[in-house]
């Protein structure tokens, strides 16, 4: 019995340590289902989140890349961010505010951020901030890869709610095509494949 107990707790420790914390998302997104069985790759992901009201949020993995990104963005589009605010950005998770409100948003503490109503990132063809963010994030990740700090470039992922009006998603897709991201992934939940169930 002791041996069995040992094994059980050894495995338990292993699974607990390998388990990743689910990243906090600013909005609840109920994804549509599809028969696709491809799993999200383990490589760094850049997620564009579109909620039910069509608000756009952006999240990317990797604190080093995020720091490089916010430095680039702050130089290209001066937002007046201090060193401290830039560090806050690296651990802020998903964000969905226009550039001119980013400073204000970063000054809030994480609990306040979760409560405050944000407008989402502008992604229209006239006022598009999503494109520069993604483009610079991919560049930053590319440089990180060349320096050997990360192993892969970003996998672009679009996660939208099933009730999102399509024009909101279309704006995101058009933005991606504009910055030459023609291949991306849509996050879906699992659904039975009728071809396979018939075969059974």
């Amino acid at each position: 019995m002791t041996a069995m107990c040992d094994v059980a707790f050894l495995l338990l420790t292993f699974f607990m340590l390998t388990a990743k914390m689910k990243p906090q998302e600013p909005v609840a997104v109920d994804t549509p289902s599809s028969i696709s069985e491809t799993k999200l790759p383990d490589a760094g992901t850049l997620t564009v989140l579109v909620d039910k009201d069509g608000r756009v949020f952006l999240d990317m993995a990797g604190q080093h890349t995020r720091l490089a990104l916010i430095k680039d963005m702050n130089t290209q589009y001066p937002m007046g961010l201090t060193e401290e605010e830039q560090l806050k950005f690296t651990i802020a998770g998903a964000f969905g505010v226009p550039r001119n409100q980013l400073k204000q948003w970063l000054d809030l503490n994480p609990t306040e951020r979760a409560q405050v109503q944000v407008p989402g990132m502008p992604a229209d063809s006239t006022n598009n901030e999503l494109g520069p963010w993604i483009h610079n994030a991919r560049l930053a990740q590319f440089h990180m890869k060349q320096e050997g700090k990360v192993s892969d470039e970003y996998v672009i992922v679009v996660k939208a709610d099933k009730d999102t009006p399509y024009p909101a998603v279309q704006k995101v897709i058009n933005t991606l095509i504009d910055i030459n991201v023609n291949k991306f992934n849509l996050i879906t939940s699992q659904e039975a494949d009728p071809n396979k169930t018939e075969a059974l």
């Binding site: 696709s36 095509i177 023609n182 991306f184 849509l186 699992q190």
Partner: peptide, 11 residues
């Protein structure tokens, strides 16, 4: 999560 890969035509 599961993903559905999509390829869009180039601009």
């Amino acid at each position: 999560p599961q993903v559905m890969p999509v390829a869009m035509p180039d601009k």
